[in-house]
Design a protein around this nucleic acid. Structure first.
Lengths: 113, 113
DNA sequence: TTTATATTTAGCAAAATAACGAAATGATTT
DNA sequence: AAATCATTTCGTTATTTTGCTAAATATAAA
C-alpha cells in the first residue's frame, strides 16, 4: 500500500499532473517545464524530484541540462496509473494546451536570455 | 482534471484507503470503521465525508446509524480507480487484516457500551 | 580562470491537511 | 420529556505541502 500511496500523492497535484502530461509529449529539461507552468525553477525542481521518488519519471544529465522523461523501467502499478490518467484526462483543455505549446517551442528560445 | 485530482487526493491517505477496502467487504456504520482504525469518531466522519464528496462512497441513514458503502452510482473514472486500487493492494497485509476482523465482528458488540 | 547558465538544496512563510475534544444534531429508548 | 446513542460540526493544534528567494553545485562558454 505504501508504494501505491506514494504514487497517488505524487499524482494528486495539478502542476505535477501537467508535468506528467507534458513528459508524455516529449523529454523536457527543467526550464522548459518552468516556462509552461510559470513557477519558480526551484519549485518545479521539487515537483520533479517528488515524481522521480515515486518512480514515475527519470532524469538524465545532458551537459548543463537535466532531461526528464517518463520512467522507462516503470512497474505494472505505475503503468496502470499512467494509463488511467491518460484515459481520463485526454480531453483536458489545460493539458492539451500545454502539450500544444511544447510542439511550437524550442529549448534554446526559452532557456536563458 | 479537477475531478481526477479530487479522487486521487481522496485516495492518497492510508486511513481512507483502509476505509475503501473495508467497504468493499460490506456496508459499515461510522463506529465500526472507528473501531478498526482506532481514530476519534469525528476524524473518521471527516474522512468519510471527503470520500463521499469525491463520489467514491455514499451513505444511507438507518435509524440512529449512518451506513456507508461504495457508491453504487459511480462513474467510469471512479470505477477504474477502484479497480486499479483493488488490483494493486489485494495482498496488502493491513487491508486483509482489516477485512478479516470485519468478518468476525458485530455492530452491536462494538457500538456503545 | 572568470562568467554565465541550468539545476538543486536550504530556509522560510502561507496554505492545506489530519488529528483531537467539545458542543450540536437527530433518532431511539426509557 | 429526559436520557442515551451515533454521528456531524466547530474550534484548535500539529504536521505536511507548496510556494518563494537566496545560496550552493555543476557544467559550458568566454
Amino acid at each position: 500500500m505504501k508504494e501505491m500511496l506514494k504514487i497517488l500523492k505524487a499524482l494528486s497535484d495539478s502542476n505535477r499532473m501537467r508535468i506528467i502530461s507534458m513528459l508524455k509529449e516529449r523529454e523536457l529539461c527543467v526550464c522548459e517545464i518552468t516556462d509552461i507552468l510559470q513557477l519558480a525553477t526551484s519549485t518545479v525542481s521539487k515537483h520533479l524530484s517528488l515524481l522521480k521518488e515515486a518512480g514515475l519519471i527519470e532524469d538524465e544529465k545532458d551537459g548543463k541540462w537535466v532531461n526528464y522523461r517518463i520512467n522507462r523501467e516503470r512497474n505494472l502499478l505505475i503503468d496502470d496509473c499512467l494509463a488511467m490518467i491518460d484515459k481520463h484526462t485526454e480531453r483536458d483543455i489545460m493539458l492539451l494546451n500545454d502539450r500544444l505549446r511544447l510542439q511550437t517551442t524550442d529549448r534554446n528560445m526559452i532557456c536563458g536570455t
